[in-house]
Amino acid sequence: MIRRLASLAVVVAAALGSYYGTLATAPYGLMWLAEAKLAKSGPVNHFTHTPPVRAERQFVVRPSPDLLYSVCPYDLTAGPLEVTAVPVPGRYSSISVFDARTDVAFVRNDEQMGGEPMRVVLALEGQQTPAGIDTVRVRYATGIVLQRVLLADPSEAAAIDPIRSKARCRTLTG
């Protein structure tokens, strides 16, 4: 009886450990896969301004055809990352930062930008950042910066491209 209970305890303990371990590590793994996929379509620490979403062109799960996306997979190993963007007048736009665990570290939309360009620096704890610029401290070296711009119709993309293309990711060195 005791041996059977001990056997059951081993199975249950191992199952609980691997269950919670899988739940805990899945977001990191899925984010890593997304970063690797995005890095194939454009360099790390630079924005890639993707064309309107279509069924045959989906860069991430559950994309919205009503949004134009620009993506910047980042790696802060070489230094903090400066992110700049300008709002597209008269429509929703936002810049958001997702860390390696998929948590949102920062969001700023066009209303919060107040019609003005935005500038923010992403940095790990301990990294030096320029004075006078908003700094977002993140826990992990890698993640994704995402720009969303509302697209009422795919034909608007050409007119929006010059404005959304002003978004920049840039490693700050020295």
Partner: peptide, 20 residues
């Protein structure tokens, strides 16, 4: 929680928080 984060990572990666 862990489960929510894992499900969102698989089924809705890069989803924004509720205030947005």
């Amino acid at each position: 929680d862990m489960k929510t984060r894992a499900v969102v990572a698989l089924r809705g990666l890069l989803a924004l928080p509720a205030q947005e």
